[in-house]
Design a protein around this nucleic acid. Structure first.
Lengths: 241, 241
DNA sequence: GCCGATTTGTCCGTATGTATC
DNA sequence: CGATACATACGGACAAATCGG
């Protein structure tokens, strides 16, 4: 349930677009109209539209209107958009998923690690390796590092279940920003040991740093995906230089 | 040169962050302070800060302040962020780049193509294949489709030079939104023919649809990258459901 | 624990500029 | 030219979160 006004307007329009009540290439009602429909100020509808534009749902055109550019994607792919967990992703695609935790330890971040992960040297972290399977095929190897200070009392059982559930529901911590880098890399021995690589010899690798609501880095993760289970979707708007 | 006030404020703060005048993990001056510094309204500074947050430079915290979470990346990687052309990317990385155009034709989009590209069935498009080389190594195979109606008079020579220059400078068309999907795929015969694949047998594939300032789809591109020349960077903030 | 000062979040109304038709 | 539509900017009001005394 949206708590703010602009958010509920955003959602209402978003649903209408997804249901093609507002069709691809058509124009939204004008701001003036939307103000009356939702009984709010101009800033508020503009805020909602800005969110939709950031999502790639609409595009504003000066003096003309706001055009819908959303097209439903027919591919039954595993999309890793926004900040979404493996579990959510799998559930949405109706696959049976399991997680194994072959490695779970506490380590201290050294200089080399610090440079790679962004954690300060000397930080105590949980170092976890997790194998994610879909329909019993080991598809993803996750290498997680969580700050012990910010994510305390992590256990192997929690890692097997859902770390994000624990972080959000039990610790009440909010995940706000996530920086990601995607590359394609050759497999390592660890990959070969843990994953069902079929005859693939390369992996899609997503490394991410995640910040909590205090703006503190609490997670560094390297997620190594078998190529056939990997699809990343993205929308970019004009960037300010 | 920024034309709007919020944009110049955005840029000023952005530079200060990049120069570490505002350090990683430190707080920006309060909105109240920034209002006085830049002599503007609260909305205007908030707009600038919102842009910086969208870029992953800062993170706002209710009741506390705005924390800098930008870290300079030391990797000399080829980053394909925002909407950036191959040429810009190569230039930024100080490599010698060349483009060959082994295929250049006009075709009509059929039903199958339409579903894949988003162009309407029957649209007349330029179908172009381009091979991009860095320091004389063929690294990227681009398969472009441009609407002939929206991008008229395209020639092989322009394709060899820079299509984006032509679109922006000659046609005066503005590129606004770009939707992208990234996957990892096995190489095809065409890849093998055109690219220096070394001993790689897979490619990073970026497919993108690009919309102009009228909200019309004018380009569909599939960009096939050799894995060692591929790095994608991204920042995600909490998404509204 | 309370209270007040500070800081960010949401929302409103209005004015002016600029692009489109 | 005027009407319509989006873009930018200002100022003010109240809410909510944080922090220090």
């Amino acid at each position: 349930m949206p708590k703010s006004k602009f958010e509920s307007i955003y959602k209402d329009i978003k649903v209408k677009i997804e249901n093609e009540e507002y069709e691809y290439q058509s124009f939204l009602p004008s701001e003036h109209t939307l103000i009356e429909v939702y009984d709010c100020s101009r800033n508020t509808v503009r805020r909602a539209i800005a969110e939709l534009a950031a999502l790639g749902y609409v595009q504003s055109m000066h003096g003309k209107g706001v055009r819908v550019i959303y097209q439903p994607l027919d591919q039954a792919n595993f999309t890793i958009g926004g900040i979404e967990s493996f579990k959510e992703s799998a559930a949405r695609n109706k696959k049976k998923f399991t997680t194994d935790v072959p490695f779970f330890e506490e380590i201290v971040v050294d200089k080399r690690m610090s440079k790679k992960t962004g954690f300060e040297e000397g930080t105590l972290v949980y170092y976890i390796q997790r194998v994610r399977s879909l329909d019993d095929i080991a598809m993803i190897l996750d290498i997680n590092m969580f700050s012990k200070e910010l994510v305390p009392n992590l256990t192997k059982a929690i890692a097997k279940r859902s770390i994000y559930d624990y972080i959000e529901k039990t610790l009440g911590m909010q995940i706000v920003t996530s920086k990601r880098t995607m590359t394609v890399e050759r497999i390592t021995e660890a990959d070969e040991n843990y994953l069902d690589m079929d005859d693939y010899d390369m992996l899609a690798v997503v490394t991410s740093q995640t910040y909590n609501s205090d703006g503190l880095l609490f997670e560094y993760t390297q997620s190594r995906h078998r190529p056939d289970f990997f699809c990343f979707h993205d929308t970019a708007s004009r960037k300010l230089s």
